[in-house]
């Protein structure tokens, strides 16, 4: 068990290392560097470029810079942005906080709702509640986020006037100032994530309810709801852990489109802006942060599944 845990954690570490290598070499391989970008508008001559590269320390071998970058990243210092003045950690810090706020709100609305809907439609398979929930889930999963977001703005904000349709709060503002502007993006995100988790929970509830031990319990006369809560759900909800983890990772790193639609000052919009401005140091840092979050969340989910599932737990123990 312990061996397994350590192995998983080490593998996660290896993945993050490979990610940083991919990010760094990817950026190195792209044509142009910070200086050609920075001086591009002035039709920079070779002399200026050389001076700039010297200033920004770009002449050293890539491997040295990679070592320095990773060392800095581990200690929380992400270096300077492409302008050579601003510290990346201050730019990214506020945005990361805002993204976490958005993700947290969406999770606290979406996950309980998804579990509830999944269990309901699993237990009442092919009946009215299941048909309604499953149809809605197909829509939520297939329609692009920007489409559902745009439609919700149209209905809830423009036609009904219930909620503000766009976020105007600045990136550095305290979290409390994002209410109520944050509500509409939260609704869209929880709608999308809810669909994925719900479908997973539904199919796993159906599987478990059809299994032998549940039939056995029914035959022995265990009351229905006791059977559902004590015998079926603990097993049925286990596979949901991994989907929830993937959704959390997606919320923390991939909600670029939603942030653009609602003008929300999170990590995703910073990512788009930095890519458009070719502010590659910032892009590298965001990529590293997001990838690390992804690896950590998935690792946590794997470990949680292992700990929560008696079968897996004892299997590894017996192996030892």
């Amino acid at each position: 068990m312990l061996f397994m845990l350590i192995r998983r954690v080490l593998l996660g570490g290896v993945t993050v290392c490979i990610v940083s290598l991919i990010i760094f070499s990817g950026v190195e391989m792209l044509p142009g560097d910070a200086c050609t970008q920075f001086l591009g508008e002035y039709q920079a001559d070779d002399e200026l470029l050389a001076q700039c590269r010297k200033d920004l320390d770009l002449n050293r071998p890539a491997i040295d810079r990679f070592a320095e970058w990773t060392q800095g990243a581990v200690s929380g210092d992400l270096g300077l942005a492409a302008d050579g003045k601003t510290k990346i950690s201050t730019i990214v810090g506020d945005r990361l906080k805002n993204s976490l706020l958005l993700a947290f709100c969406a999770m606290s609305l979406g996950i309980p709702l998804a579990l509830l809907l999944g269990v309901i439609s699993g237990l009442w398979r092919d009946r009215l509640p299941d048909i309604i929930a499953s149809t809605l889930a197909i829509f939520a999963m297939t329609i692009p986020e920007f489409v559902s977001a745009t439609l919700l703005i149209l209905v809830l904000s423009i036609w009904l006037g219930w909620l503000p349709g766009i976020v105007l709060t600045s990136a550095a503002a305290p979290s409390s100032e994002f209410f109520p502007e944050i509500l509409l993006p939260v609704i869209v995100l929880s709608f999308v994530m809810c669909a994925h988790i719900m479908r997973m929970v539904r199919s796993s509830v159906i599987d478990v309810m059809a299994s032998d031990y549940i039939q056995m319990a029914t035959l022995k006369g265990v009351p229905y709801w006791q059977m559902v809560f004590r015998h079926a759900l603990p097993n049925a909800l286990l596979p949901a852990i991994n989907v929830v983890a993937l959704t959390i990772a997606w919320l923390l790193g991939g909600v670029v489109v939603i942030e653009v639609v609602f003008n929300y000052p999170g990590l995703g919009r910073l990512m788009i802006d930095s890519i458009s401005d070719r502010n590659l140091p910032v892009v590298q840092s965001i990529a590293l942060i997001v990838a690390s979050i992804y690896v950590c969340v998935n690792l946590a989910a794997d470990l949680l599944t292992m700990i929560a599932n008696p079968k897996l737990r004892t299997m590894y123990m017996r192996k030892q």
Binding site: V19, I286, V290, A291, Y294, V295
Partner: peptide
Amino acid sequence: DAFLSLPWIL
């Protein structure tokens, strides 16, 4: 795994 851990849009 490393490639999958980066957001597609980036």
